[in-house]
């Protein structure tokens, strides 16, 4: 890991389960990413998408019983890449979440990091 252009990349975590958000955070920090913010509810997520500096996001599809669809739409229109991390298989997810790479919970932390590296250069190109 000598040359990692995305080392400084700032990641927004949108996840209602504190424990999982914490685990993601620990995983990302350990790999040299920066945390742009953590949102556990939809309003907070929309605020952060609109207001904070981030390069990519990790999005849970369900935030305390509320669909994260509006957050997905906001991310799409912001032009920044994101990963869907959900307990639902992609086939059961609403249309609004299609198109983004999807990782199904529970997942190996390594896989999340790989996916992030895949989407980040595209965002910077």
């Amino acid at each position: 890991m000598t040359d990692k252009p995305q080392q400084k990349a700032r990641i927004l975590i949108i996840e209602d389960e504190a424990m999982i958000a914490f685990a993601i955070e620990q995983t990302l920090l350990a790999d040299g990413f920066e945390i742009a913010g953590i949102a556990a509810r939809l309003p907070a997520a929309l605020t952060l998408i609109d207001g904070c500096a981030f390069d990519a996001a990790i999005l849970d599809t369900n935030l305390a019983g509320v669909s994260a669809g509006p957050a997905a739409a906001a991310l799409k229109s912001s032009g920044r890449p994101f990963i869907i991390a959900s307990g639902y298989p992609p086939s059961q997810q609403p249309e609004v979440f299609r198109g983004a790479p999807c990782i199904q919970k529970p997942y190996p932390p390594k896989r999340l990091l790989e996916l992030l590296r895949e989407i980040l250069p595209l965002a910077r190109a």
Binding site: M19, I20, F22, A23, Q26, N62, G87, K105, P109
Partner: peptide, 20 residues
């Protein structure tokens, strides 16, 4: 589908707890 979702979420939590 909801149970599936919850179970997977719970496993993810267990995974996080185990890692930490």
């Amino acid at each position: 589908a909801e149970i599936n979702h919850r179970a997977k979420n719970l496993l993810a939590v267990v995974q996080a707890i185990a890692n930490q």
